[in-house]
């Protein structure tokens, strides 16, 4: 039970302390997220500029206007290898309609990546994430992880794990035409 009356000064002091604590607590909860843009469905995909195999650089923003599949992979990741032929097939089928796949490779040497690309006959662009920053921005943990962006660069779908040809095609058609049924 309150035993004393409180002077205005004491009230002010108490409220000031309590407010500071509350503010810090809120900061603690919300500011401890990674700084910088983070990929989220419904939000614009974080832009990046990475070295591209066989060229200079590729920026994600250059692909605005196309439906983009961002595929995070590595040559030593078995499920990534497994889904590559399916990706290549869908790519060839729809690239003239405005579909682009960007394979984002995690920290491998150019020699290894080029060898793999030639071995499998991949024709879609491959870029290198040498520092892993783009992986962090897209919250990638297991590989393969695929993000699908619409023509405005908004993240629409996220898929973790290897994809079948149907699964890729369905999403691509949805973003290209608004319907998911294969032709």
């Amino acid at each position: 039970m309150s035993r004393v009356s409180h002077s205005p000064a004491k009230r002010l002091f108490t409220v000031a302390i309590l407010f500071t604590m509350a503010a810090l607590a809120v900061a603690y909860i919300f500011l401890r997220q990674p700084t910088g843009a983070v990929a989220e469905i419904g939000k614009p995909a974080p832009d990046f500029t990475l070295g591209i195999l066989g060229g200079d650089y590729l920026s994600l923003s250059e692909l605005r206007g196309q439906v983009v599949m961002l595929n995070f992979w590595a040559t030593w990741c078995e499920p990534c290898r497994d889904e590559m032929p399916a990706m290549q097939t869908v790519y060839e089928r729809y690239r003239d309609e405005g579909f682009e796949i960007v394979g984002i490779n995690l920290q491998e040497t150019e020699v290894t990546v080029r060898g793999f690309v030639n071995q499998l006959g991949i024709t879609f662009p491959i870029v290198y994430d040498l520092t892993g920053e783009v992986y962090d921005a897209y919250l990638v943990r297991p590989m393969p992880t695929s993000y699908f962006l619409d023509r405005d660069g908004i993240v629409r779908f996220l898929f973790i794990g290897p994809m079948t040809e149907q699964e890729i095609e369905q999403r691509v058609r949805l973003l290209l035409y608004g319907t998911g049924e294969p032709a």
Partner: peptide
């Protein structure tokens, strides 16, 4: 250098992989 495989193994479908 056609290919470099840090941890060589043979895959039944693809051939040499890492």
């Amino acid at each position: 250098v056609v290919h470099y495989l840090p941890d060589f193994a043979m895959d039944p479908n693809l051939g040499p992989i890492s």
